[in-house]
């Protein structure tokens, strides 16, 4: 990986954190409200399917969580294991693809 690419990952991880932080708070807030209000699955789906806001929010959430988490995982693997750089990149990249696939599958289901 070139230094330029390394700088790009550094910037992406910080910018994704900037977006991720309010989304995590929103997500936790939604969970608390849903639990307190006693919403069942059908009621939740009725709300998400009648709105574009929630699918867009959760699609964004999956993308930034995937990007942020996978760059972080790459750093952790580099610093705490003896794995070669190529393996570390493949594991982190593979996880990002998994998160995006499952994430968009979920968003498709609630949209």
């Amino acid at each position: 990986m070139t230094q330029r690419q390394e700088r790009l990952l550094y910037v992406l991880q910080r910018l994704s954190a900037l977006v991720l932080a309010p989304l995590v708070i929103l997500h936790i807030g939604v969970m608390i409200v849903a639990v307190q209000g006693g919403l069942n699955t059908a009621e939740m789906l009725a709300r998400t399917q009648s709105s574009t806001f929630w699918p867009v929010i959760y699609a964004t959430f999956f993308v930034v969580a995937g990007v942020h988490g996978c760059i972080g995982l790459r750093n952790i693997l580099t610093e705490t294991t003896e794995l070669p750089a190529r393996s570390v990149n493949r594991i982190s990249g593979g996880l990002l693809i998994l998160i995006l696939v499952f994430g968009f599958e979920t968003v498709r289901a609630i949209a």
Partner: peptide
């Protein structure tokens, strides 16, 4: 700056 603006430098 360019020499240290990578993962072996300040970014880590």
């Amino acid at each position: 700056l360019r020499k240290v603006a990578g993962e072996s430098g300040c970014l880590s």
